[in-house]
């Protein structure tokens, strides 16, 4: 195989985003008080997340992942299956599996490039039949999250850079590769391949896709 299809995950193949995942963990925190406290804090933090995401995906990541500080690695892993059953699985768009199947049938390697946390998405990737992926990784010290991400932090230009490096290493032709993403923050990732596809795009990405004559796909 000399080409691949690179997918963003949140908003592209599934309808949830990082905040849904965090809210699930907050809801399922140990102890009722702790759970209520974290859930309330998540809700209170929504405007901050939205503003940060609108400004820069990097700033959003810096703020958002701090909220994981103190979470136990064991518990995050333990709850990952439930997270898939309750949140991520039902959020898979109806068009996702047919798209992956058609893409796989054309001989493209299937690769997920996401800003989500690696420990949270593994059951989902198994469900989608995807084995190759790159995701963000939380830093843990003594089994507890520090609230920081291990580099490289997958967002915006880093995704494009990773795709370039990966393609070079694997001998893939970038001009034959596909990329699917939903957000303007993923513009670099779309721009680096020969077949970019705006998928369930936000308004800004949609107008960019129209300007560049990129296909616009809806998986809802």
């Amino acid at each position: 195989m000399t080409a691949a299809a690179f997918y963003d995950l949140d908003g592209t193949l599934i309808s949830t985003n990082l905040v849904h995942v965090f809210a699930f963990y907050a809801r399922n925190d140990q102890g009722i008080l702790q759970s209520i406290k974290r859930s309330a804090a998540t809700i209170a933090g929504l405007p901050i997340f939205m503003a940060a995401d609108g400004y820069s995906r990097k700033v959003f990541n810096d703020i958002f992942f701090k909220w994981y500080k103190g979470q136990s690695e064991d518990r995050l892993r333990y709850l990952a299956e439930d997270l898939f059953e309750e949140v991520l699985g039902p959020a898979v768009y109806p068009g996702t599996l047919p798209l992956l199947e058609k893409s796989r049938n054309t001989g493209l390697r299937q690769v997920v490039v996401t800003g989500a946390l690696d420990i949270t998405i593994q059951p989902l990737l198994r469900h989608l039949g995807i084995t190759e992926y790159v995701a963000n990784r939380l830093e843990f010290v003594d089994g507890r999250a520090t609230g920081r991400l291990k580099p490289p932090v997958m967002a915006s230009a880093t995704k494009a850079s990773w795709i370039r490096t990966y393609s070079e290493k694997e001998g893939l032709s970038l001009s034959d590769c596909f990329a699917y993403a939903d957000s303007m923050s993923d513009l670099p990732m779309l721009s680096v391949v020969g077949h970019p596809t705006a998928t369930n795009p936000d308004l800004r990405l949609r107008s960019t896709a129209l300007r560049h004559d990129w296909p616009i796909v809806r998986l809802q």
Binding site: A5, G95, P98, K102, S103, N105, Y180, I216, R218
Partner: peptide, 11 residues
């Protein structure tokens, strides 16, 4: 066989 075009045709 372009998966994007197939998706746009189907959905």
């Amino acid at each position: 066989t372009n998966p994007s075009y197939i998706q746009m045709y189907r959905q």
